[in-house]
């Protein structure tokens, strides 16, 4: 899932200090799982903002809420009255949710309350690790199920580089070398042979490099009525 962390409170206060009516909008999706933008975090932020405005002697009205997903307009529609009633909205959803909320309520000023980082897993309570870089063309089948793009610091397709040492990446002793992991796994699977063939340059057009990406799944789109059917 998407991983985010709360922005420093000072930064958020700085965004909203000149507004009075604030809506803190959380999301029950990914940001709830990584404890950055769910109901609990919304309540903490709301409370903190009330404390700030009160001690600063400013009139205020801070409301907290969450919706099922901020990346769906059906759920965002539920916020209509609350958004209309606010001077500014702080969205603590991921960057996608924040933007979609902004798109839906275009005349309202919306601030981000979290920093969105990556797609990853929950390694342990409070430990989130990146696993997928969303390159749009999955190579896991040939790399033992370990992604060289997300897990090699140089996104090499023919690793490991000469800086790999004792299974660790040259950037930090705390970062496992992705290619070391790939090699170990290929060995376990008896597929080391596949390691010896050079992998051609990757087509990055399906990645961020191709520009903003859109997926259109015709099979999922609403069906057009068929003309000339038997019952017409």
């Amino acid at each position: 899932m998407i991983k985010a962390t709360p922005k420093p409170l000072e930064e958020i206060i700085n965004y909203v200090k000149d507004f009075n009516k604030i809506l803190v909008a959380g999301c029950d999706g990914c940001v709830t799982v990584c404890e950055a933008g769910g109901m609990k975090e919304a309540k903490v932020l709301g409370s903190a903002l009330r404390l700030y405005y009160t001690q600063a002697g400013k009139d205020h009205e801070v409301v907290e809420t969450t919706i099922t997903r901020q990346c769906d307009k059906e759920y965002l529609a539920e916020l209509k009255d609350m958004v209309e009633n606010a001077d500014a909205v702080i969205s603590i959803a991921c960057g996608c949710g924040i933007q979609y909320l902004t798109e839906m309520y275009n005349d309202k000023i919306v601030f981000p309350g979290v920093d969105t980082h990556f797609m990853g897993i929950n390694a342990d309570r409070g430990i989130f690790e990146e696993r997928c870089a969303g390159c749009g063309q999955c190579v896991l089948a040939s790399t033992g199920g370990i992604c060289p793009i997300a897990r090699c610091s140089k996104r090499m397709l023919n690793g490991p580089c000469g800086g790999s040492e004792a299974g660790k990446c040259e950037i930090s002793k705390d970062t496992p070398c992705g290619w070391h992991l790939i090699y170990e796994r290929l060995e376990k699977l008896g597929q080391v042979d596949s390691f010896t063939k050079p992998v051609d340059p990757k087509n990055w057009r399906t990645s961020r490099d191709g520009g903003p990406r859109v997926i259109i799944r015709e099979d999922l789109r609403k069906a057009e009525p068929q003309h000339g059917s038997a019952h017409s």
Partner: peptide
């Protein structure tokens, strides 16, 4: 470099194959 001398030799082979 890691993980082992065998892999480093294979990688040499890969560069030569390229």
């Amino acid at each position: 470099a890691g993980p082992n001398v065998e892999l480093r030799a294979l990688r040499l082979g890969k560069k030569i194959a390229a």
